[in-house]
Design a protein around this nucleic acid. Sequence first.
DNA 1: GCTGAAACTATTGTATACAAATATGGGTGG
DNA 2: CCACCCATATTTGTATACAATAGTTTCAGC
Lengths: 215, 215
Amino acid sequence: MSKAADHAYAEIRSLILSGDAPPGAPLTEEALADICGVSRTPVREALRRLESELYVVRSDSQRLFVADWSRDDLAEMFTLRAMLEAHAAARAAVRIDPAGMEAIAACNARIASAVAGPTPEVGAFLSENRRFHEIVIAAAASPRLASMLAALVEQPVVRRTAARYGKDELSRSVHEHGELIKAFAARDPEWARAVMTGHIRRAFHAFSAAAPLSV
Amino acid sequence: MSKAADHAYAEIRSLILSGDAPPGAPLTEEALADICGVSRTPVREALRRLESELYVVRSDSQRLFVADWSRDDLAEMFTLRAMLEAHAAARAAVRIDPAGMEAIAACNARIASAVAGPTPEVGAFLSENRRFHEIVIAAAASPRLASMLAALVEQPVVRRTAARYGKDELSRSVHEHGELIKAFAARDPEWARAVMTGHIRRAFHAFSAAAPLSV
DNA sequence: GCTGAAACTATTGTATACAAATATGGGTGG
DNA sequence: CCACCCATATTTGTATACAATAGTTTCAGC
């Protein structure tokens, strides 16, 4: 997407995730166009995308509302992500090339150093962690999988902007990433799948514990 | 989507699947608008949808082309479908209600009768088979899963419009559907998952054997 | 006071015009 | 003869105007 449509997408998503547009709130194209400072056309494209990612839902007759995710929805999102990303890891294990191996190892080293100090740099952790998973998905070389995961990856994470990760959890992540790299080095798809499954599901339970009722 | 956009979607997809727009062919919005008899606006929406379903791909700078699916792409599509639809079956096994059970049993009965005669009614089989899988997905009660599968289910099937199913394969399907219904009755998610995995993967190999080189 | 229909308002869908960006072709200099 | 650059044409992106449709209010009649 291009500038205006992309901007509208980011702005509307931020309205939703920040809570300014609470679950169930109606969204009209014109109001959003005013807020974003663009015309309805790019807003419509942004809304289509948000709809396909289930940030917004469409009523019986084409009116849009902010989606309301139940606890079950979140659990299902994590389950799907675990399944798909584990599959990506299995594919990546037999497809990743030396450059990819180098990149992923370097990435995990940066994550480790972000976590190393007495006060972990959460921002750096999050962005590098994201990069790590992107490398795995890229190495899986399945555009379809990539497009499915794109709609899925960020959603639950973004909500807890507070990001109260404990330091032990962060270093556990680093360790699990290291295991995944070992599975890649061994070119063992099932090992990679198992590591990734555990990695995501542990993140899910950490998430559930951190956000017990609010979401 | 509404009338014009929906019509454009159907028309463009048909162009692609019929081969009138072969893999790699460039698609310009204006030409498609002329063909469909609508303006560019609904064509753009249709193209976004086709892009998200990977019928078309976007070049480095926003030009669209008919996608070219390799054998690996098709294999990956079936793998993903097997994984996701097996997951849907597992969820459905513990969620389906009596009305759903009745509907799915009736549906499989209709499939069986379409296959029963000396010359199977392929058209009826296809539409009822589609309905069968829709019931499973609906019973899974996961909008996210449903939207992912929607983009995945039809694609390989539609290509082989010839539909040279052997009669034994058709009745094998009926039998596997029956197994799935039994797994549902037992409310056994893992049984349902295993049955559905086998069902889709068998379909994949039948498909590969029937379309060995052309796709 | 309640029900229903009709007028009205709000919102989405489509078409068109224009702006921005990108590819293409021809010409020029090396 | 090839490489590069600029002018032109094509294509996509955005804004706006208008049409169609869904929702809301008001008022008549019971």
